[in-house]
Nucleic acid binder design. Structure first.
Lengths: 338, 338
DNA sequence: TACATTGATCGAACCGGTTCGACAAAGTCC
DNA sequence: GGACTTTGTCGAACCGGTTCGATCAATGTA
């Protein structure tokens, strides 16, 4: 049906290898035959068969993107990471195989050992990520967007959530807050071992203790009406709290409406500070001061490094664990107290 | 590096073809050799090479998912369609190649004519969709989630947006509303030819006219602060409106907080009715009556049909244009007036 | 003039699967 | 006991690319 390189060769009156070399430029081809080949290609609408090329070169120009859509995760948040990965990959000539199979280990094994992908991008990373085991046996490199304790040997890119927590606590301490509420990711995220959740909370607790502040962490919910109930409970449990720190996408998205409904003015009655990206803030009209999570930068850097490791492993050097520096974006939702 | 079928054959002491037949079951293999082969496979950790298999069978077991993330689209809304497509594909043994290249025509041509995919799923369909042209020349079947005027020859699955509009207008008319505001998708969606936008608005206008109702359509925005400004303007332009119909994901997501802020009580001061899915309602805590958009059903049906067309084209029969019946989910945000 | 060098091309082998036809051994039938 | 079918296996060809080594003419050099 579709034209093959043999068809092109016949029409152009040359051998198959000549067509191949004309296409790849790996050997000199005379100007004249090159144009004849080009004409034949256009006339036949020839496109190299991806399977055949993959077989011959052991390269697919496809990256695997491994993620899960968990019930308790806020899907729109995940999307922020998919986007930059997708566009960065494309910019480098790679397509993206999106793997959402709930059987994580099998999905990784299947796609890597069948050589469907040249490299793996892992989202939704946990402290003890089961996907790393099959990836160690794989011939393809992998990069984590997130951090895993068993991630030695892999490049990792993540926000420095510990530093993010310290930044926030410092900020509130400087404003005189002594009693603050922390809404964390849902309990299930901790149960799964979502490392960003632990790292943020532990650092926040530690830092607040150093200041002698009261900091009350509460698991947030990912769905209504749980979100509202949880907020009610958290605030009721800390009646004198002057600030709330929200490290939970679903909760922060619901917060403006919640505050309105409860008649809580921000920042007059309550200082609010979150952890989310500029894009997320725009999509959900969030007027809150926050630590920027920079999904674009993370996704882009991660994919760049992965592709470097695929194409020039000697240049890539030792695996890198990069925690990008968080920055506080002041949108005026916190104010001094006392 | 990785084990090949030849390695398995050698270890099991049989020929390559025997291994292949043992795997596919296409010819009888004695129980004894079958187990010997199975042992060899496990011992070597053999997985068939996807490229080689694709080359031999002209099948990749990969579906292409073609979508764009437009600035003016509300990304979380798009995700609702990606999810069911992904899981349905996986349930049938297909992986998903996510193609977000802004050069639509080229992306389709490249992935289909190189035989990377066995079929195509189109999202973000427009009235005159440029992707259909290259798909007509392709050997792979395609399915649209959405509706295109130039879509003859392809299976299409979409909500019946015309009927959705009529359902809504009828509902409001029955409650005695005579003056209503309609927030439509952003202007850019119309400019691109997003057919759902036209179909909904035209039907709404037509139906309202039949009742002699006043219906004032306004283009919604996809980002703040445009959303709020536009709502202000729309309501100011219809000071006597008793109901608002929102066919715009970004606007409806921002609406609860907007109403609170403006002190508008729903449904006492204003009846609200939207067009969104159950999932979306949950994710954004939307308390509004709405026409259900059923992205799960659409995605699932579309992928099922595509796979049928791939595996048993004779059974699939003539192309189908299926508009699924909308249903009104009453969440109590509308009430009788007059 | 003889000889190495370079440029352009070709043929063959190879990547790792699948599938067709052939064939030997065993089983069935009269 | 011979003819015929069935069962189980093998070898070879093929899918459509890439790449290595060889060939041969043209060019440069001693």
């Amino acid at each position: 049906m579709a034209a093959t390189i043999g068809d092109v060769a016949r029409v152009a009156g040359v051998s198959r290898s000549t067509v191949s070399y004309a296409l790849s430029g790996k050997r000199a081809i005379s100007e004249e035959t090159r144009t004849r080949i080009q004409e034949a290609i256009e006339q036949l609408g020839f496109t190299p068969n991806a399977g055949a090329r993959a077989l011959a070169t052991s390269q697919t120009n496809v990256l695997g993107l491994y993620l899960q859509f968990e019930e308790d995760e806020f899907a729109p948040a995940m999307l922020q990471y998919v986007l930059p990965v997708s566009t960065t990959a494309r910019d480098h000539g790679y397509d993206l195989l999106m793997v959402t199979d709930p059987d994580l280990v099998n999905a990784v094994r299947r796609t890597t050992s069948s050589a469907m992908v040249d490299g793996a991008v892992l989202l939704d990373v946990t402290y003890d990520d089961v996907r790393l085991e099959p990836l160690r046996g794989a011939t393809q490199p992998a990069v984590l967007i997130g951090y895993a304790r068993n991630g030695e040997g892999f490049d990792s890119f993540d926000l420095d959530f510990g530093e993010a927590a310290r930044l926030i606590v410092d900020h509130l301490a400087a404003l005189g807050h002594r009693d603050i509420v922390l809404i964390t990711p849902p309990r299930q995220v901790y149960d799964r071992g979502g490392s960003y959740a632990w790292r943020f909370r532990d650092a926040a607790v530690e830092r607040a203790a150093r200041y002698g502040m009261r900091l009350a962490p509460h698991y947030g919910e990912s769905r209504q009406p749980g979100i509202v109930d949880e907020l009610d409970a958290a605030l009721a449990a800390s009646p004198d709290a002057t600030a709330i720190v929200v490290h939970n996408d679903a909760t922060i998205a619901a917060l403006p409406s919640y505050l309105d409904k409860r008649g809580i003015r921000c920042p007059d009655d309550l200082s609010v500070i979150g952890v989310f990206s500029q894009d997320f803030a725009q999509a959900f009209s969030l007027p809150f001061t926050a630590v920027e999570t920079s999904p674009d930068a993370l996704g882009q850097e991660a994919v760049r490094r992965l592709i470097l490791r695929i194409t020039a492993p000697e240049q890539a050097g030792a695996p890198v664990v990069r925690f990008i520096e968080p920055a506080l974006v002041d949108r005026g939702s916190t104010r001094a107290v006392g």
